[in-house]
Amino acid sequence: MSYAYLFKYIIIGDTGVGKSCLLLQFTDKRFQPVHDLTIGVEFGARMITIDGKQIKLQIWDTAGQEAFRSITRSYYRGAAGALLVYDITRRDTFNHLTTWLEDARQHSNSNMVIMLIGNKSDLESRREVKKEEGEAFAREHGLIFMETSAKTAANVEEAFINTAKEIYEKIQEGVFDINNEANGIKIGPQHSPTNTSLPLSGSGSSQGGGCC
């Protein structure tokens, strides 16, 4: 299917916070109470529409366990958006956010849009992290914030789409250089003349090198 832009996302956060479940809910609209653990990285993709434009999200779902850090670091490269997930029923996953954020900032490009997500909002009775704490952390570090539930699907669409909107706005503002793939944005086939088999004269020069 044709698309205007492709955004690379990365989902990060402690193990067991529901990263893969969020992805599954977003791509397949279903919930699996027992999800396989992730080793290395797994992928998902979905098309969304923003401002009348088709945007393809390519989502990299990473392993959460500490031991995998050195492997997952290499996956940050070229991500336009990141979902940093913690579990509202487990304080320790919230406490580790700073380390995750440092990691993300250090290994990705500076313009990457980061969305902070407090997942498992359906488990209100077991909540250990107040919503206000999440909001405060997001404010302090310049992140967007949302509480979601991969189980009930509450806010899941919004989390992925709002991140994309933010990236899209940055493109409009010219913050992102869309021709540099290291920013995690790729121009869709019909927009990128170099991808067509017949080169069109006149428009190729500025966008050359944007693909492959």
Binding site: D36, I39, G40, V41, I71
Partner: peptide, 15 residues
């Protein structure tokens, strides 16, 4: 291979 083969070899295909 970093993108697909790590779970293959780390778990000898059991994952």
């Amino acid at each position: 291979p970093e993108l697909y083969a790590i779970p293959w070899f780390l778990t000898m295909f059991t994952h």
